[in-house]
């Protein structure tokens, strides 16, 4: 397992710009609405708990108020919001999620003496996901023809990271400028930053 991630930009928060020209009304409205995660409506409590456990492995968050991810996936499934693509090898999106969640749990049980995914410790959960990504499956029948890697990468990982990195906290930890309308940027060259950007970051490999 790798080192816990430490942000190169401690102290930087895109939300400090909330009242500045970097934020416009529509962006504030979107972020405000997202502050209260939607209620669970599509998955059942067990499936939802499993999804939350998956989100926590994919994006380990050590902040006091973690960015909610699972509720937005549930809401998208409830609303039938698609991605525009359904690979022919994949079932429709809702079925894919239900089948995928069930299969991941089945994989856990097959690999760890009948213990479900949620009951595993984090390193074991991660190891399991890595073997699923490799296509190294112990409960192939649970996938019902759905390619595990396709589900894992194209749906599960992709949706989780896209939700996470649209959250201000995630933008801040990578030093991204965040919302930028109507104010954009002036200084475009290396070594130059606008006062409303993150200060220069520090990385261990170049301390």
């Amino acid at each position: 397992m790798s080192q816990p991630f430490r942000t190169p930009y401690p102290g930087y928060d895109v939300l400090d710009k909330w009242d500045s020209p970097s934020f416009d009304d529509q962006t504030r409205e979107v972020l405000r609405a997202r502050r209260d995660p939607p209620p669970r409506r599509f998955l059942d409590p067990n499936q939802f708990a499993l999804l939350e456990a998956l989100c926590a492995v994919v994006i380990p968050q050590r902040r006091p108020e973690p960015v909610p991810i699972a509720p937005f996936i549930d809401a998208a499934l409830h609303a039938g919001r698609g991605t525009g693509t359904r690979f022919a090898t994949m079932p429709p999106e809702r079925d894919a999620w239900l089948r995928g969640l069930e299969a991941i749990d089945a994989e856990a049980r097959a690999a760890f003496d009948g213990r479900g995914f949620c009951e595993l410790v984090r390193p074991k959960q991660a190891r399991l996901l890595r073997s699923i990504d490799r296509g190294d499956c112990r409960a192939p029948e649970a996938w019902q023809e759905m390619p595990p890697q396709k589900f894992f990468r194209a749906l599960l990982l992709k949706q989780i990271v896209q939700i996470y990195y649209s959250a201000p906290a995630a933008m801040s930890e990578i030093g991204y400028g965040g919302p930028a309308s109507p104010r954009g940027y002036v200084r475009l060259k290396v070594g130059q930053i606008d006062p409303w950007e993150a200060p220069f970051g520090t990385w261990e490999d170049q301390a």
Partner: peptide
């Protein structure tokens, strides 16, 4: 960021602290 994170995960399958670390170099 979301776009790039999606590119990273769909091409490498990385997740967890590896992913956070890689995105930390955004």
């Amino acid at each position: 960021p979301g776009d790039f994170a999606g590119t990273l995960t769909s091409s490498t399958g990385m997740f967890g602290d590896d992913l956070l670390e890689a995105m930390g170099r955004y």
